[in-house]
Each structure stands twice: as C-alpha cells, then as structure tokens.
C-alpha cells in the first residue's frame, strides 16, 4: 500500500511540484482566514476563553436567528432549484430567439450587483409606491396594500423571493449544461419504445440530471447560508429580527458593535455548520456514484 503510494509519488513528482504554488496560495487564502477566525473567536480581553461562544448561544434571539436561517435557506434553495429546473427544461427546447432569452434570463439576475438588486426589490415591495402592490391590487388579489417589509412573515417571504430571483440563474445554468449532455439518441430510442414525455423525463433525463441536482443543491445551500447583502439592504435583519440570519448577526456584531471576538464565534459556528452540510452532501453524492 505504502509502496504503491510512494511509487505514485515518485512517478508523479513532477506533477506535484507543479502543483505546489497553487496549493501554497490556496492554503494561504483559505486556511489562514479560517484559522485566524477560530483564534479570534477563542479570545476575549487578551485571554483564551469560550466566553464568546457562550455569549452567542445565550443570546435571547439565537433561537429566532437559527429558525430564520433555516427558513431562509430551505425556502431559497427549494425555490431556486424548482425555478431553475423548469427554466432549464424550457430553455433547452428549440425555439426562435433561444440565445437571446438564454442570455437575458440567465445572465441578468446573476450579473446584477447585490446591492442594486436589494434596493430595486425594496422599491418593488414598497407599500405605497411599490409596483408589486399595484399589480396585485389591480388584479384583485389583494384589496389593501400589503406592508411587505414591515410584517414578520411577509418580510421573510419577501427576502426569499428576491433571493430566488437573484439565484435561480445559476441553478438553471447548471441544469441546462447537464441537459445538453443528454445524448439525443436516447430520446429517439425511448420514443421508438413508445415512451411518452413523462416517461422520457423519468428514464432518460432524470438519471443524468440527478448528480447535478445534488451538487447544485449543495452549492446553493452553502451560498444561501452565507449570503447576506440582499437581506442587509432590504430589511437590515428586521422587522424585530424576523430576517436576521447567522451572517447578518455576525456582520452586525463585528461592524456595528465592533465586537470582533463574538462575531468570530458566530462565524466559526456557521463555518462548522456549513462544513457538516457539505460533508453530508459529499457522502450522499459518493454513495450515489458507487451505486451506479
């Protein structure tokens, strides 16, 4: 075993040497902040302590913030996957102007800066001047203007909808790329076998898409947990902490209250959480690979 490893090493020594600069830079760029963050989180007033973690977990709003983070993440991820999936299927069809629609639909939300998206949605949600209330009112769906960002549940929904718009493009792009890899002959073959649209999807498209779904879900979950500019510009975590997540909490603690140690404790906690989620996904992924 060891000999084999050593053999590999010597055979690939040149390749490894080529890799060294990248590994070193990656280590510096990734490991250094993580370690520094853990170190800061374990200090208070120049002493080593667990005080910061205790403070974070004892925080009266901790349960609420955790709940919000789950709602925000699950809501955004599920909606982004669904919208992205449907859009990818649609954009995979042959129709006139496909390239145009692809670029508009897939690139526009993704390329718009976070803060611009936040401010734009904030205006659309505005209760008095907002376009959303106006449309819903004219359609007769609501009979009074909804205070979108001022009500706890509506605000949670509002940030998730905005985030879905911002993020679905990425999922859609992944799925579209995956769909393009499905060999056309398979569809033709199944057609010969008399499969209908749903059977084709289930037996041809889905097995190929499945690993992409798992990977995309993992990536969007991680990004959503860590994503904060949208919430920050739209609600600032309010009303009454309804849209406060782990990262808005960490940001506020560091850059408003200048309590970097406590903020680092929250960030480290979030890091571990995200890390565990990634591990779970990776395991699920490798098990699926093995099954095949």
């Amino acid at each position: 075993m060891l000999r084999k490893l050593y053999g590999d090493m010597t055979r690939n020594a040149f390749a490894y040497r080529m890799l060294i600069p990248y590994v070193v830079f990656l280590a510096l760029l990734v490991l250094y902040p993580i370690i520094a963050n853990f170190v800061i989180s374990l200090q208070a007033d120049g002493l080593w302590t667990l005080k910061n973690y205790q403070q974070v977990f004892k925080e009266p709003v901790f349960a609420k913030v955790a709940f919000n983070t789950v709602i925000w993440t699950v809501g955004s991820v599920v909606l982004q996957l669904l919208v992205g999936f449907v859009l990818a299927l649609l954009l995979n069809q042959d129709f006139r102007g496909r390239a145009f629609f692809r670029s508009i639909i897939l690139v526009l939300p993704w390329a718009t800066p976070d803060i611009v998206v936040g401010v734009a949605w904030q205006w659309m949600y505005n209760d008095m001047y907002g376009v959303l209330n106006d449309i819903l009112f004219r359609l007769g769906i609501i009979d009074y203007y909804l205070p979108w960002l001022a009500d706890q549940d509506l605000a949670r929904l509002a940030v998730i909808i905005a985030n879905t718009w911002k993020g679905f493009a990425l999922s859609a792009m992944f799925y579209l790329a995956a769909l393009q890899t499905v060999p056309h002959e398979l569809y033709e073959a199944s057609e010969v076998d008399g499969a209908n649209v749903f059977q084709k999807f289930l037996n041809v498209t889905w097995p190929i898409l499945r690993p992409f779904v798992v990977t995309t879900t993992m990536l969007t979950t991680i990004w959503t947990i860590n994503y904060f500019p949208l919430i920050f510009t739209m609600t600032g975590g309010g009303p009454a902490n309804a849209t406060d997540t782990f990262v808005t909490y960490a940001y506020r603690t560091a850059f408003r209250f200048l309590d970097f140690n406590r903020s680092a404790a929250m960030s480290s906690f979030t890091f571990v959480l995200v890390f565990l989620i990634s591990l779970l996904y990776l395991r699920a992924l490798s098990r699926k690979e093995a099954e095949r």
């Binding site: 505005n126 209760d127 008095m128 203007y145 205070p147 979108w148 960002l149 001022a150 009500d151 605000a155 609600t235 309010g238 009303p239 009454a240």
Partner: peptide, 16 residues
C-alpha cells in the same frame, strides 16, 4: 403613521 412603519425611517417620511 403609514402601514409599513416598521420598515420606514426619517428619510422615507421626508420623501413622503
């Protein structure tokens, strides 16, 4: 005060 008061501040009221 307007219905979306929990999301409004001085600057918004000045515009209004």
């Amino acid at each position: 005060s307007p219905p979306a008061t929990p999301s409004y501040g001085e600057d918004d009221f000045r515009s209004m």
